[in-house]
Design a protein around this nucleic acid. Structure first.
Lengths: 247, 247
DNA sequence: GCACTACAGATTGTATACAAGCTCTTGTCA
DNA sequence: TGACAAGAGCTTGTATACAATCTGTAGTGC
């Protein structure tokens, strides 16, 4: 089984172990702080120890699991402060990506593609709340953030941003699905879109400081959303892994 | 073998595989771009495939190796731009650490300990070039940068900084040992130390913006040093893994 | 001469057997 | 009654056998 890239590598069992274990954690099937041994996980997932071992090590380095001194791993619990910090960190890194893109300049075709994503977001956000295509927004939003990392022109930075996005709740759309029916949601959508436009404009105008500042502030929206969600335990249920938070 | 923390885990063979493989790469024993298979590495190191496999996967995620589509890994080659970006990234993250430390405030005992490190660096740098205790400088400098990450008060950021320091040549003392006898070295040491003092002062005075700006600029010293080293191939020999750069 | 197919070799994926050590419990002795 | 020691069980570390498949090459047919 010589399989191509890292995502495909381990078509069957390894991938099953990784996704299965991640799901076990995020779904709350294993309690935060609960101990996970290679054997118990392999029995739960119906796999042998080898792929499970790899998955445990990987999630351990991703930060979702924590190595226990006496052996095995524990589901890590996060405090609200940890989530705040993760979001702040994303803001800093995306701000750097925006600044580098502005400073170093991007090609016409790249900036055009970027602006096309912004326009698509414009039309999605421009509809009435009732007919908002939510999944289209999440998808286009993810594209915007992906492309921002690419525009930085730095593979190193791109890789690091991807790494931070693996941290729980740091993603740009992490808390959105809990809030589709809240009034705050609509306003945060609108101001977020204004920031998207400002970032694209600043990059095009090669205004590095502005691009960085706006991108940083943009991440703060997620912090606001987090605070809203945390205050309302009914909403918290709808965010996949919020069970891991608070400890 | 239920061994405690992550560094100890795998006392014998796993650690041997990790260190051995890392050494194989940094020493230039395997050429940049050369293909590494589990079997060839395990034969070279005299280990079985299992620990080698783990080491390959780990270095792959650290960024030193690169997965080959047809299977196996290749020693990754870095461009000077990659190294520049890695250093820039360290500056951004350490700048954030300094800003957070300033904004959130640090305890008296912490700031005292931090200033003690700065004073130690002062005395080391204050000597004549001839009697400079080089290894003491490297050690105290590492302590300064470690503690800066701790002072941020953010485990998430601390972890991320540690992650970036694993990138080749991103460390704060990466290029120093190539330059002990150069005049540029002395000036960069002196201005670097001025920046250390300024960072500590800014944190104490809770001047977040200043702390961030100085810490960022501080990382730029490493970029200057890199440029000096790269221009002089004789110096490049003395930096362990500079063979990986330029491609 | 070119293209397609089939086979062989190489390489990773997976499972499992065995080794080693840590922890916890239980029993005994002072 | 308390403390220490010994042993059992659990858990991970390591090695290896076997499976699956991908790549490259060679041969044949059109």
């Amino acid at each position: 089984m010589a399989l191509p890239n890292e995502t495909q590598r381990g078509t069957s069992q390894s991938l099953k172990a990784l996704l299965g274990l991640r799901d076990l954690v995020y779904s709350g099937e294993v309690a935060p702080g609960e101990r996970l041994t290679e054997i118990s996980v392999s029995e739960r997932l119906g796999l042998s120890r080898t792929p499970v071992r790899a998955a445990l090590a990987r999630l351990g380095r991703e930060g979702i699991l924590e190595a226990i001194p006496s052996g095995g791993y524990a589901v890590r619990t996060f405090t609200a402060a940890d989530v705040h910090d993760a979001i702040e960190l994303r803001g800093v890194l995306e701000g750097t990506a925006a600044r580098l893109a502005a400073e170093r300049g991007v090609s016409c075709s790249d900036i055009d593609a970027f602006k096309a994503i912004v326009r698509r977001l414009d039309t999605i956000v421009g509809t009435t709340p009732a007919e908002l295509d939510f999944s289209a927004y999440v998808s286009a939003n993810a594209q915007f953030h992906d492309m921002l990392a690419v525009l930085s022109g730095s593979k190193v930075l791109q890789r690091e941003i991807e790494h931070v996005l693996h941290l729980p709740f740091a993603g740009p759309s992490a808390f959105l699905n809990a809030q589709t029916d809240m009034p705050e949601f609509r306003t945060s959508l609108i101001s977020g879109q204004a920031q998207h436009r400002a970032i694209a404009h600043a990059i095009e105008m090669r205004e590095g400081a502005r691009a960085e500042a706006v991108a940083r502030e943009h991440a703060r929206l997620a912090r606001l959303n987090l605070d809203v969600v945390i205050r309302d335990s009914a909403l918290a249920e709808r965010v996949p892994g919020l069970r891991l938070v608070s400890g």
